[in-house]
């Protein structure tokens, strides 16, 4: 239950809300408004694609949602006002509620695929070692990498690494899946594969809100909602019927 400044209790379960979110970077004497008074309300179970050119603030939006960047205003994720959390609580929030898929995969090179997924699960849950391994294996099977679960990142292609990253993000049962240009470093075929994996996993997890940041207009077709940003401001919000990633062409 979320309590407003006026003391009114409202339930924001299943909703991610941004209220007057601002993010200003100081670059020497200049100020850059990466986000300007952004207010949004997003329902879980949806795939939200944030679209915009470079410098539009889309990655900043993702960062503040994932609590790896600070901002003014409020961000409420399922009743939790993350802008009021201290450093320790933010870490817990990221650990338990957020799944991250980075543009550059960011797998731990010293761990193989299975271990990378296990790490995230072990961190976020209190499962036994056996259960952790079982769940990690299941997720790797889901992303089609069961056979390569003992491969290290250096032995995997970019697409495979990103699929491991997807498994790592989803295996810990997050409420929020944040994808920052997940196909940016991949070939078209690999990109489609990764997006398909994401769509498939989302089907199994209707309680997860997925936010995918891209500058590729074509990719926005897979989203339930497309938010366009321009110079840190919300330019438009469109609802649409998504198409399956396999049908994409770019």
């Amino acid at each position: 239950m979320y309590v407003t400044d006026q003391g009114i209790k409202i339930s924001l379960e299943g909703v991610v809300t941004l209220e007057h979110v601002n993010r200003v970077y100081k670059m020497g004497n200049h100020e850059i408004h990466a986000l300007k008074d952004v207010s949004l309300s997003l329902e879980t179970g949806k795939l939200v694609v944030v679209l915009g050119p470079s410098g539009s603030g889309k990655t900043t939006l993702l960062n503040v949602l994932g609590a790896i960047d600070k901002c003014d205003g409020r961000i409420i994720v399922n009743d939790l006002d993350i802008t009021r959390l201290n450093k320790k609580q933010l870490t817990k929030y990221r650990r338990e509620k957020c799944g991250f898929i980075f543009q550059f995969f960011n797998l731990l090179p010293v761990f193989n695929a299975l271990e990378n997924v296990e790490y995230a699960i072990e961190l976020a849950s209190r499962l036994s070692r056996k259960e952790v391994t079982k769940r990690a294996t299941d997720y790797l099977r889901k992303v089609g990498l069961f056979e390569k679960r003992y491969h290290f990142p250096s032995q995997l292609s970019g697409g495979e690494q990103q699929r491991v990253a997807a498994a790592r993000a989803m295996a810990k049962n997050p409420e929020l899946l944040l994808c920052d240009e997940p196909t940016g470093e991949l070939s078209v075929a690999e990109g489609k594969q990764v997006l398909a994996v994401l769509q498939n996993m989302m089907k199994e997890r209707p309680d997860v809100l997925t936010v995918l940041v891209t500058h590729n207009q074509k990719i926005s077709q897979i989203g339930d909602i497309v938010i366009r940003l321009r110079s840190g401001e919300v330019d438009s919000i469109e609802k649409q019927t998504p198409i399956h990633a396999e049908e994409l062409s770019w």
Binding site: G66, I68, K88, T91, K92, R94, R95, E96, C98, F100, F102, F104, N106, L108, P109, Y119, A120, L123, A124, R168
Partner: peptide, 14 residues
Amino acid sequence: QREIATLLTIGTNN
């Protein structure tokens, strides 16, 4: 650095 940042991002505490 990037690995540590990733660990912190996915919820490893200090």
